[in-house]
């Protein structure tokens, strides 16, 4: 906690805490190999919050699980490089890998009802996380767990130690899950849909908490979600995933105001808003592709309003079109400007 807060430094000068390069994670299925993550590259800098957004099946959760090599068999990381605080995660073996988990990168999972072990008290589980990284002294265990519980806003932390998960509400359990992810003071917190299972008023509380904690400790946050509102609230930068690939990456404000990929703009326009009244929402047609046999060209081609012949045959690369703004679209130069402007003109 004494660490210099990296958030104080400018974003350009910060070092990467996580660098993922050309990651491929595959699952064998009856219908052939599904490459759920297919050539994904991104980085997370010290103290920043990167959002990884996409719909179900886009590969965002598999990406998150790949980072700490928690992909369940028969899923397998086929190739790529994951560099976490200078360590090559894919080259680590046994004990080395275990020591990285929780201490350099912590995780927060989606469902607080199932993410905690029902047979052990909250205090025991948090102590277990500390014990895994060499804390043995009972007094220190007790003190640090109480601290962690207080930090996530649990009333009366000392008493909560003997509480079982089922005796807590969903919001409280998710606070415990966050405390567990943060207790070893990792440099990166990976949160996979941390508020999806919670009620909206509780979601707001939990998001605020995560924002405050990561800021106070200078922890970088990789936030995986399908919810653009959560992205808007939490993130500095965003990477948009579609069909196993990152299709766009930009600073959060740029992404929402001037998206360059047709999928991003389509997604943004199809979100109903709580401050809007009744009315039709613009939609994208069609479905994401079958990942057992993905199209050889652009994976969004069959849903894209700007599709041309070249899109069907050539697989576009993720290119930086402006500073800190990457997109994977063959027609990005030609279409120019932002897709949002175009769509307003093109589709009424």
């Amino acid at each position: 906690m004494e660490r210099l807060n990296p958030a104080d430094a400018g974003p350009e000068t910060r070092a990467n805490v996580l660098t993922v390069t050309d990651l491929q994670t595959a699952f064998p299925t009856r219908r052939g190999t599904v490459r759920a993550v297919d050539g994904v590259s991104f980085d997370v800098r010290e103290g920043e919050t990167l959002g990884l957004v996409g719909e179900s099946g886009s590969g965002k959760s598999v990406t998150a699980m790949s980072i700490l090599r928690l992909v369940a068999a028969p899923g397998r990381i086929e190739s790529g490089r994951i560099e976490l605080a200078g360590q090559d995660v894919l080259a680590l073996e046994g004990e080395e890998l275990r020591r990285v988990r929780g201490s350099i990168a912590g995780m927060v999972f989606q469902n607080p009802m199932t993410a905690l072990n029902p047979s052990f008290t909250v205090g025991w589980q948090l102590m277990e996380a500390l014990r895994a990284h060499g804390v043995r002294d009972p007094e220190e265990l007790q003190r640090r767990v109480e601290q962690a519980l207080a930090a996530v806003g649990m009333p009366d932390p000392a008493r909560q130690l003997d509480t079982y998960p089922h005796q807590m509400s969903g919001g409280m359990r998710q606070r415990v899950v966050i405390a567990m992810g943060m207790i070893n003071e990792p440099r990166l917190l990976i949160a996979d849909e941390p508020t999806t299972a919670l009620d909206v008023t509780i979601q707001a509380q939990v998001l605020n908490l995560m924002k405050r904690l990561t800021r106070e400790h200078g922890t970088a946050l990789l936030l995986i979600t399908h919810n653009m509102g959560v992205i808007a609230r939490m993130c500095d930068r965003v990477a948009v995933m579609y069909a196993g690939e990152i299709v766009e990456e930009a600073l959060v404000r740029t992404l929402f105001s001037a998206p360059k990929h047709p999928y991003t703009s389509g997604l943004l326009r199809s979100i109903p808003r709580a401050d809007h009244g009744r009315g039709k929402v613009p939609t994208m047609t069609g479905f994401p592709p079958d990942m057992a046999a993905p199209p050889s060209g652009c994976r969004f081609a069959d849903r894209c309003p700007y599709v041309v012949d070249a899109c069907l045959s050539d697989r576009p690369a993720l290119v930086e079109v402006e500073s800190a703004h990457k997109t994977r679209c063959l027609r990005v130069q030609e279409l120019g400007g932002s897709v949002a402007d175009l769509t307003v003109r093109g589709v009424a």
Binding site: V200, T201, Q203, A204, L207, N227, M228, G229, V230, I231, A232, R233, C235, V252, R253, F256, S257, L268, I271, R273, A274, D275
Partner: peptide, 12 residues
Amino acid sequence: RAALLPDPEIEQ
């Protein structure tokens, strides 16, 4: 208020 809007200008 709790419903998040897809708009970083407002949300942040």
